[in-house]
C-alpha cells in the first residue's frame, strides 16, 4: 500500500449562480481591484492508502459522487499525489 493525498475540487456547474462569489467580487471591486469574474470552489484534501494512484482516484471519485459533490449543481476534479 502507498500513501496518497487526493485533492477534490468541487465547483458549481457553468451557469449556476454563485451569490457568495458575486458578493466577494463586489467587495474586491470596492477595494479598488479590477476583475472580470470570480469563482469560488470547495477543495478537500484526503489522505488515504491505496494499492495504486488509480485505486486511490477511484476511491475518492466514489466519495465525490456519494457525498462531496451534488451532481445537480456541481462538477468536480480529482488530483492524486504520493504522500511523503
Amino acid at each position: 500500500m502507498t500513501a496518497y493525498t487526493a485533492t477534490v475540487t468541487v465547483r458549481l456547474k457553468h451557469g449556476v449562480l454563485d451569490p457568495e462569489a458575486e458578493t466577494t467580487k463586489r467587495s474586491l471591486e470596492r477595494l479598488g481591484f479590477d476583475l472580470e469574474a470570480l469563482r469560488s470552489t470547495d477543495r478537500y484534501e484526503i489522505d488515504l492508502e491505496a494499492e495504486s494512484a488509480g485505486d486511490a482516484a477511484d476511491e475518492v471519485e466514489e466519495m465525490a459522487e456519494r457525498l462531496l459533490a451534488n451532481p445537480t449543481i456541481h462538477d468536480y476534479d480529482i488530483d492524486v499525489a504520493e504522500r511523503e
Partner: peptide, 17 residues
C-alpha cells in the same frame, strides 16, 4: 429531500447570499 434524491433539484444559497 433533494439531497437524498426523494425529489429533484437542489436548494442552494439565496440570491441575496
Amino acid at each position: 429531500g433533494c439531497e437524498s434524491g426523494l425529489t429533484e433539484g437542489a436548494f442552494t444559497t439565496n440570491e441575496s447570499a
